[in-house]
Amino acid sequence: MKHDKRHDLSQYPLRLEGDNVPMVRFQNVTKRYGSLTVLDGLNLDVAEGEMVTIIGPSGSGKTTVLRMLMTLETIDSGVIYVDGEPLTHMEKNGRLVRANAAHLRLIRSKIGMCFQHFNLFPHMTALGNCIEGPMQVLGLSKQEAEERALELLDLVGMADKRDQHPSRLSGGQQQRVAIARALAMRPKVMLFDEVTSALDPEVISEVTGVIRGLVDQHNLTMLMVTHQIGFAREISDRICLFFDGKIEEQGSPEMLLDNPQNERTQQFLSAVLEAN
């Protein structure tokens, strides 16, 4: 865990307070792999209930943003806040220090994630996948967990496949179970990393349909990485375009997609639209 010693943590608040506390805040976050700086002083706020989509060329750091928030990657400097509390750090004697495992577990409970390759547990059924977290982590009884899971499997249209193992499900079906599994933990923030990229074209709408439903039904904060510009336009409150580990341009879908200010944004959009 490399941490820049010179990096002064005193400039960061111990917690975010006031009227407009964002659900997620990246404050001056830097991430490096060796000599490669993947994210450079990232600042990004996501409001409660907001749907923010991240687009950008491959390798621009989109996945890294989500993985840092899920604590799958450590950060090299800056602080990430979730629901007003620091995630990557914690308060000790009135100062911010690196978060320990217990603090990470506490704050992480507010975040759920869906992966490009689903990562369902192959040795459990669809239902088993969805009750695993609630029973093992939240301590729910089997009956409570199953009730909750079945409701969610129903929401994603997978209730009839509850007893199937993942190997018997199509990609679209697996991804829908994965969404139900993440939701069963009742997160406040959901992360979607290219959840349709590994799917055959004809089943993509199964999954986008479920995500669309979440925007309406739950007051969830969502961060989504996708290459589907049309879908992003339809459901996002805001779109951020990443370039080389920085936000090149951001704004409402109409603003960013129809009236890009930046030349690199225009180039990227025309290249993506041509490919579609």
Partner: peptide, 23 residues
């Protein structure tokens, strides 16, 4: 065991021991 399995278990906030034992 694919790395994604560790990651998915962590995303469910499972403790290291639970991740090992259950997943």
């Amino acid at each position: 065991v694919p790395r994604g399995q560790w990651e998915a278990a962590l995303a469910l906030n499972m403790s290291p021991a639970k991740r090992m034992q259950r997943i």
